[in-house]
């Protein structure tokens, strides 16, 4: 009996170990090793921190690094602000069929690939696009308006891409809030704002934190949206990693960039958890 249980345990654990080992731990160890070497001449490598020094002293690299971090935090914040009322409406105000239909509306855009969705935005926002034509037709603009290739367009794309990942955890936590608790908040003299601040938000906190973590990671690691919608000035850190690996074949610097991104996201997620006084265990479990 006991050996059976043990075999079952090992079998069940194997996929997880393989997944973690082959796809996450081993590549990262390899990346770390690559990032810690310097090419001296053809085929000759030496261990050094030169890549990190280069990354941290070159203004373009550093600026892109911080810009990516700040813009990702901003995108996360905007997504939260838009998604919270949406999720609240779906979870608490809509009833029955309407609730399901609205939830489906949030989900349906994700049936098509991110590439197609991003092209959709390009069709809307480009110089000869729908919005531009509409503005000219109504007389609000007298010439074609270019709305692509700037930070605003990129932000729209990032928020749109991440929306679902914020709405789902929020709807789940808000649905678990008993209506009578909200009513009790009003009954005992609370106004709309104080009920939101003291009852609804504290209850939704696990959903807010897990939604924010997912959206932040998605934004930080996004490649497509900044490349397609962003301007020349909106360089994203993932583009730089891609450039080093693919365009310049400088795997050492690319690996160093990759590690910097990993550290950055870990630090910001940790900070987010600290700020809200939650543990990773509470949030994910």
């Amino acid at each position: 009996m006991r050996s059976h249980a043990r075999i079952g345990f090992v079998l069940l654990l194997t996929p997880l170990v393989l997944w973690l080992g082959l796809l996450i731990v081993i590549p990262h160890i390899d990346m770390l090793l690559i990032s810690l070497r310097e090419r001296i001449s053809f085929g000759v490598y030496e261990t050094s921190t030169a890549q990190y020094q280069k990354a941290l002293t070159e203004p373009l690299y550093l600026r892109t690094f911080w810009r990516t971090a700040v813009m990702s935090v901003l995108a996360t914040g905007i997504t939260l602000l838009i998604a919270f009322p949406v999720a609240y409406y779906i979870a608490k105000m809509a009833k029955g069929r309407l609730q399901q239909v609205l939830f489906m509306f949030c989900l349906i855009p994700f049936y098509v690939s991110e590439l197609v969705r991003t092209f959709g935005w390009m069709i809307l926002l480009r110089e000869t696009g729908i919005v531009s034509n509409l503005l000219q037709w109504t007389g609000l603009a007298d010439q074609p308006v270019e709305m692509l290739y700037n930070d605003a367009a990129m932000m729209v794309g990032l928020v749109y891409t991440s929306m679902l990942f914020m709405v789902v955890p929020l709807v789940t936590t808000l649905e678990s809030l008993d209506d009578s608790v909200i009513e009790a908040g009003y009954d005992l003299g609370g106004g709309g704002f104080s009920v939101l601040r003291e009852i609804i938000i504290p209850h939704a906190m696990p959903g807010i934190v897990s939604g924010c973590i997912v959206v932040f990671m998605l934004s930080l690691g996004n490649y497509l949206t900044p490349t397609m919608l962003g301007g020349k000035d909106s360089l994203w850190f993932t583009e730089m990693i891609y450039n080093q690996f693919i365009v310049r074949s400088n795997w050492e610097l690319g690996a160093a960039f990759g590690f910097m991104l990993l550290v950055l996201s870990s630090v910001i997620v940790w900070g987010m958890l600290r700020l809200t006084g939650r543990t990773l265990q509470e949030t994910m479990g």
Partner: peptide, 13 residues
């Protein structure tokens, strides 16, 4: 003021 059926105490407080 009202005492609710399931009391509706605020669990976060």
């Amino acid at each position: 003021n009202m005492v609710f059926q399931h009391l509706a105490l605020f669990p976060m407080m």
